[in-house]
Amino acid sequence: MTLSGGLTRPGERDRPIIKFMEVDWTFCLVLAMIAGIGSLMLFSIAGASWEPWADKHLLRFGIYFVMMIILAMIDLRVWFAIAYPLYAVGLLLLVAVELVGDVSLGAQRWLSIGPLRFQPSEIMKIGVVLALARYYHGLSADSARLSWRLLIPAFMIIAPVLLVAHQPDLGTAILIAAPGFAIMVLAGLSWRIILAGAGAVLVAIPPFVMFVLHDYQRNRVLTFLNPEQDPSGTGYHILQSKIALGSGGLLGKGFGLGSQSQLNFLPEKQTDFIFATLAEEFGFVGCFGVLFLYGAVIFMALRIASISHSHFGRLAAGGVTATFSMYVLINGAMVMGMAPVVGVPMPMLSYGGTVMGTVMIGFGLVQAVRVHRYTEVTSGKGSLV
């Protein structure tokens, strides 16, 4: 039964069928379109074959899509309740990685528990967003703008960022820090702190690059500044990517006709540099179309955040959107030679289950914010009005 204006009665909002209908299916369709384009590109670069990447990409998306819809049915008060425990578990797992983590290719990022092998840093991408959204939910506007209480969220961000950076995994550290900072800004952080922080970061970058980064990370930064200095070594990735981007022109060479990817000149063509493959085969028009879809996802996610009745819901959805936006921004800049190569894939487009899982779980939270947008979350158990 509905009230005037199409609103359901409070008691009816918890019915599964009503929740299911409240899911933003246009949002889901755009995600499916991006994943579908990713599968087509993986099909192309594998020599017109569904194996070894395209079929798995579609299967993973199907599984994570169902997971996203299930997560959308979870009440915001449940997300609120698990925020701090999830953050605490993620932080403990990061410490465990430091002590007993698996070492692979010179990095200690993985943790094995029985047959399960995973990266705890992926948990923190969601954990930090939830924990910060819960913290700011109970903070007054004046305290969120400028007070000593801001040291707490600053520590909540810095602790996992330092642990992840030490693994070393600079890309993931950025993907944890940037959305965390975005939530602080959305919560009303004073512009004085924002400008002071930006100035401090700019001043700290040169000594950070020269004295803190590992040698291979420092080489990536220096290569980004001048890739032509070592075209067959450290500059190879960026130069081949630029060649693929430029050779596509306006309309591209055509589906399956990208020489850089088909002849294996382009490294990591199925993961980090799949956007360069897209540019080579479909040109500027194809890249613009995909970026338009990404922009639509970001716009719809921010709109969902804006209609939530709870501060927690708004900040949580905004934080997830910031994470997704950083994926797109960093990968796009990296592929175009505007940022160092840091191993950040293009979400939903690149092959890989870990990032897709993190993104879809995050969007499950965004959909939960939409489905339960009338839920009022209190600092205690919360109540529905």
Rank of each mutant, 00 (worst) to 15 (best):
V201E: 05
F211E: 05
I193L: 09
G235S: 08
Q240F: 15
R192E: 11
M184Q: 06
V209S: 06
P179K: 00
I194P: 00
A200C: 12
A196P: 01
T223I: 10
I193W: 03
L251F: 11
P227Q: 05
V221Q: 03
L250G: 09
V212R: 08
I194M: 09
P207N: 05
M210P: 01
R192G: 08
P207C: 14
T234H: 07
L251W: 07
Y236Q: 04
G235P: 02
M184A: 09
Q240I: 15
F208W: 06
G258D: 00
K242Y: 14
G254C: 14
V185Y: 01
H237W: 05
A196M: 10
Q217S: 06
F224Y: 07
L186W: 01
F211K: 06
A198P: 02
A196W: 02
G235I: 10
N226H: 09
F211W: 02
F211H: 08
N226W: 09
R192F: 13
A200H: 02
A204K: 04
L245K: 01
G256L: 12
Y216A: 14
T223K: 00
L195T: 04
W191T: 05
M210I: 07
K242E: 15
H237F: 01
L222R: 04
L213D: 01
A204C: 11
P179E: 11
F211V: 14
A200E: 04
V221H: 01
Q217G: 08
P206G: 10
F208V: 13
N226D: 12
L250M: 15
F181M: 13
L245Y: 09
G180K: 04
L222E: 09
S190E: 12
L186A: 11
G249M: 15
V221N: 10
Q229S: 13
F255N: 04
Q240L: 15
L213K: 03
S190L: 11
A244P: 12
S241M: 11
E228L: 12
L213T: 03
T234Q: 14
V203K: 01
R192C: 11
G248K: 02
M184Y: 03
